[in-house]
């Protein structure tokens, strides 16, 4: 009897955890802003609501770690079980709306062969960059030469836009997210969304 009880607790725990998180209602989608994607299409920040979303910020002219950054995300994506991968969306937001136009973002997407049915490269309006960085716990600073100094982090949002995980350091963050997606029992896997 005790054993069954224990098993029950162990089975139930992941559910109760994910419920507790959504009950707090810290959805980033409460922040409203318009984004423009690589096709020049305008959309709300919550464009991927209903899907777990991997979000990260970048700027296209960064020649040191940004190419690496997309590779890390692609590798993370490839490690996911295909059933999960189909549900996941990936949203990359530019720090640099002055330079990262739809044309630039489209080129970058093609260069890296990104699956644009699941990936979006977007730029926000100039006045909303810092808000988005603040919401995603990014530290960034424009440099005199036009580039940016910034932390590299990856954030995982649940279907409602609540942060499930956010971690600095690309490689570690990507590994953590793969692990979380393996373990986490999302409502979508039960067909609730």
């Amino acid at each position: 009897m005790k054993i069954i009880f224990l098993i029950l607790i162990i089975l139930i725990t992941p559910f109760s955890l994910s419920w507790a998180q959504t009950v707090q209602g810290n959805s980033l989608y409460d922040y409203q802003t318009i984004l423009t994607d690589q096709d020049g299409k305008q959309m709300d920040f919550n464009v991927f609501q209903g899907h777990p979303v991997v979000v990260s910020m970048f700027y296209a002219s960064c020649d040191y770690s940004c190419p690496l950054f997309i590779d890390v995300l692609k590798k993370m994506d490839s490690k996911l079980d295909s059933k999960i991968r189909d549900k996941i969306r990936i949203l990359l937001i530019s720090f640099d709306p002055a330079h990262d136009t739809s044309v630039v973002l489209y080129k970058l997407a093609k260069q890296h062969h990104l699956d644009l049915s699941r990936w979006k490269l977007v730029f926000p309006s100039k006045n909303h960059v810092r808000d988005l960085a603040a919401l995603l716990n990014y530290t960034y600073r424009p440099l005199p030469d036009g580039g940016f100094n910034h932390t590299s982090a990856i954030t995982l949002l649940d279907e409602r836009g609540v942060i499930l995980h956010s971690e600095e350091g690309l490689q570690n963050a990507a590994n953590s997210i793969v692990e979380i997606l393996k373990k986490q029992n999302f409502p979508f896997m039960k067909g609730t969304l």
Partner: peptide, 26 residues
């Protein structure tokens, strides 16, 4: 306005040398 612009590590002692390349771009 830009309170989140200082790329100072939360462990101050790391800043004596170069910033952590894993953490910072640029």
């Amino acid at each position: 306005l830009d309170f989140n612009s200082s790329l100072v590590s939360s462990d101050n002692r790391e800043n004596a040398t170069s910033p952590d390349k894993n953490r910072f771009c640029g």
